[in-house]
Every structure is written in structure tokens, then in C-alpha cells.
């Protein structure tokens, strides 16, 4: 009996040993998975943005306001500001979203809906967190699959697929865990920038109340349980 237990132990140790040995190899690098995903992301980002470019406002007061807030968050958190491609869209919908290859789209509707820069910084930090945590590509790969994404970049999937992809990123939420991860990261970024996350929580709370003066609330309809989010952001902000 003792011998069999010892043999079981040795067998398990051998299996664990094989796994540890194999995991020493950088398979992601060997199979060029990250490189392939990066190249795909860049291509997708360019293609999606090409379809929206005309509606973009790349200068003016609103652009400068958002740009200065994004720059402040990037500077305080060690991110390269140049890598984020900021775009302001003239749209009354309260919305902001991240596209592949670090394109960040902010609607003028959102800029008009916030009461102060702290609130706006909260939303921007949340979108930056989605970019930093690679949520955009994770979501696309999950919902569309590698093959379809590649066929979009080669043009095989047709123009409709790009619209579908844009619709998915601008009007549907990430899953609950990813949203929470982005919120928690956003709190961290805001704190490092010297901005109180309470502004972000206030904005979420107001959206949760579905304040009629805010107009069309895309951002909140894609980010469920905003009151609950406001609650945990306030809790974490206090720490």
C-alpha cells in the first residue's frame, strides 16, 4: 500500500515537473501570438477609424479640454500619451469608447453631460484602463474570433463586418469582471494623477438615476449597475 502511494506521489510529481518544465518556454513568443495580435489590432484600428474619421473634431476647446485630461493621466501613470489616438465626435449621445490600437473616441454629448473635469477624467481613466488591460482585443477575439478578424483586415468579410465591429465596441458592454477591472484600474490612475475618484462615482450615480437632462445615455446602457459601481468606487476612493 505504502509503495503504491509513493508511486502515485512520484507520478504526480513527474506530471507537475513536466508542466513546470514546459511552462519555462515562452510559447507566446515562440508561436508569435502577441506579435500577430498586435499587427491585427493595428490594422483593425486603422480600418475602423477610417470609417469614422469624417465626423471627428481634432481641434477646438472641447478637444483641448479632453486632451489635457488624458495627457495628465498618462503623465502621472507613465503611459506614452502619443500612443493614445484621441478623437472627439460631434454626437449628442453620452458615450465614450475605446477602439483597437488605442483609438479613444469621446462624444461631445459626454463632455456636455459631466459637471466637472473630475467626472470626465473618471470616464477617460476607465477607457484608458480598457486599453491598458487589452480588453478591446480580448472582447473582439472572444466575440468575433481570430479568423473573422483576419478576414476583416483582408477585406474578405466585407464592409458590413467593420460596422458590426464598431457597433459592438461602441454600444455593448464588456463582461462584468472586465468592467470592474477597468473601474479599479481607473481609480488607481486617478489617484496617481491627484484626482479624486469621487467625481467618477458621482457621475455614475447620476447616470444610474437616469437623469433626464443627460439625454441619450449610451455609456450607461452599456455599463450596467452604475449605482453599484459608484458605491464600490467611493469605497475604494476612501482608502
Amino acid at each position: 500500500m505504502k509503495k503504491t502511494i509513493l508511486q502515485a506521489f512520484i507520478l504526480l510529481s513527474m506530471a507537475a515537473g513536466i508542466y513546470l518544465l514546459i511552462s519555462r518556454v515562452d510559447w507566446m513568443k515562440l508561436f508569435r501570438i502577441e506579435k500577430m495580435t498586435d499587427a491585427l489590432e493595428q490594422k483593425l484600428g486603422d480600418m475602423v477609424w477610417a470609417g469614422m474619421e469624417e465626423q471627428s473634431i481634432e481641434e477646438g476647446k472641447e478637444y483641448q479640454r479632453v486632451d489635457s485630461l488624458v495627457t495628465a493621466i498618462c503623465k502621472s501613470n507613465g503611459f506614452e500619451r502619443k500612443k493614445i489616438k484621441l478623437h472627439i465626435m460631434g454626437d449628442s449621445e453620452v458615450n465614450a469608447f475605446a477602439l483597437p490600437d488605442r483609438h479613444m473616441v469621446v462624444h461631445t454629448g459626454l463632455i456636455n453631460a459631466v459637471h466637472n473635469n473630475d467626472e470626465l477624467s473618471g470616464v477617460l481613466a476607465h477607457e484608458i484602463a480598457h486599453m491598458e488591460l487589452s480588453h478591446v482585443m480580448k472582447k473582439l477575439l472572444k466575440q468575433m474570433g481570430y479568423t473573422l478578424l483576419i478576414s476583416i483586415t483582408t477585406g474578405e468579410a466585407g464592409g458590413g463586418a467593420i460596422k458590426e465591429l464598431l457597433g459592438m465596441l461602441s454600444s455593448t458592454a464588456y463582461d462584468r469582471k472586465l468592467e470592474k477591472d477597468a473601474d479599479i484600474k481607473a481609480i488607481e490612475y486617478l489617484k496617481k494623477t491627484g484626482i479624486s475618484p469621487n467625481g467618477f462615482a458621482d457621475f455614475l450615480y447620476r447616470l444610474g438615476e437616469k437623469d433626464g437632462s443627460l439625454g441619450s445615455l449610451s455609456w450607461i446602457s452599456t455599463h450596467p449597475d452604475s449605482k453599484e459601481r459608484a458605491k464600490y468606487i467611493r469605497e475604494k476612493a476612501g482608502r
Binding site: A15, I18, Y19, I22, S23, V25, D26, W27, M28, F31, I33, H135, K138, K139, L141, K142, Y174, D175, K177, L178, D181
Partner: peptide, 23 residues
């Protein structure tokens, strides 16, 4: 890895799949 947004292809996952294959 296929259906959850918070799970993705990673080195530990690939190492496990290769281990499973070897075993």
C-alpha cells in the same frame, strides 16, 4: 479561453495544453 472575456491564451495555458498532449 474561447467564451470568457477575462480568460485568454496565455503561456500557462499553452504549457498545459502541450503537457496534456505529451501525457
Amino acid at each position: 479561453v474561447f467564451f470568457r472575456e477575462d480568460e485568454h491564451v496565455s503561456n500557462p495555458y499553452l504549457a498545459y495544453v502541450i503537457t496534456v498532449f505529451v501525457v
